[in-house]
């Protein structure tokens, strides 16, 4: 699973270096990943969290939507392929990268209570266009290669990290249902905005 999650970023980044994917292609890939994410959320994640007898699940979902709209303010919509490149920026856009990293980290959390692999593949597909957009953005911003490579590697490690932590850290495993509900909210926001 770790390998699959990292592989999607590798595929995305390398495809930018080898072929220059057209805007149209990225858009269609994004649309597909948005639809996939939405249906995984509705068909698998939602029924799963509502199996538990918790009254506040709905609140957590709404909270997730709120979190994502805050994150989106900082990431300026990289998750759905909106990047406005300012050529020759010297400064690394930390806020954008941190919120994108958080976003990737959150995605890894619900993976640990998934028994079938549809969410894993949804995230796999979802991360390909995002890493294409991220890599294109970094290259066009003329950062040093070392900076670009380390940012992409960090980004690739975030989802596996979320998966690992939600599996091992006690608080995360204890409140996995609530966390998954928050992430359902995030997924609902992302996928509907993409579509």
């Amino acid at each position: 699973e770790f390998f699959v999650l990292i592989l999607s970023v590798i595929i995305g980044s390398i495809s930018v270096l080898i072929t220059k994917p057209s805007k149209k292609f990225i858009q269609i890939l994004l649309t597909f990943s948005g639809a996939y994410l939405l249906s995984v959320t509705i068909l698998h994640l939602l029924p799963e969290v509502y199996e538990m007898n918790t009254k506040n699940i709905g609140l957590f979902i709404l909270f997730g939507i709120l979190i994502q709209s805050i994150l989106e303010n900082f990431s300026k919509g990289v998750e759905h392929g909106h990047v406005h490149v300012h050529k020759h920026v010297e400064k690394v856009p930390w806020l954008l990268l941190i919120s994108l990293g958080l976003h990737a980290f959150f995605e890894g959390i619900p993976l640990s209570n998934e028994h079938n692999h549809s969410l894993l593949w949804a995230i796999f597909i979802h991360k390909i266009p995002i890493s294409i957009v991220l890599t294109t953005f970094l290259i066009q911003s003329k950062f040093k290669n070392i900076v670009i490579i380390s940012i992409v590697i960090l980004f690739a490690l975030m989802t596996p990290l979320g998966f690992f932590i939600s599996n091992t850290v006690y608080i995360f495993t204890k409140y996995l249902t609530e966390l998954t509900a928050i992430i359902i909210g995030i997924f609902l926001h992302i996928s509907t905005i993409i579509l």
Partner: peptide, 16 residues
């Protein structure tokens, strides 16, 4: 039209 197909495909894959 391509986007419509992409959406339907995305839905269909998880449903199956």
């Amino acid at each position: 039209f391509k986007k419509l197909i992409a959406i339907l495909l995305g839905f269909a894959i998880t449903w199956v």
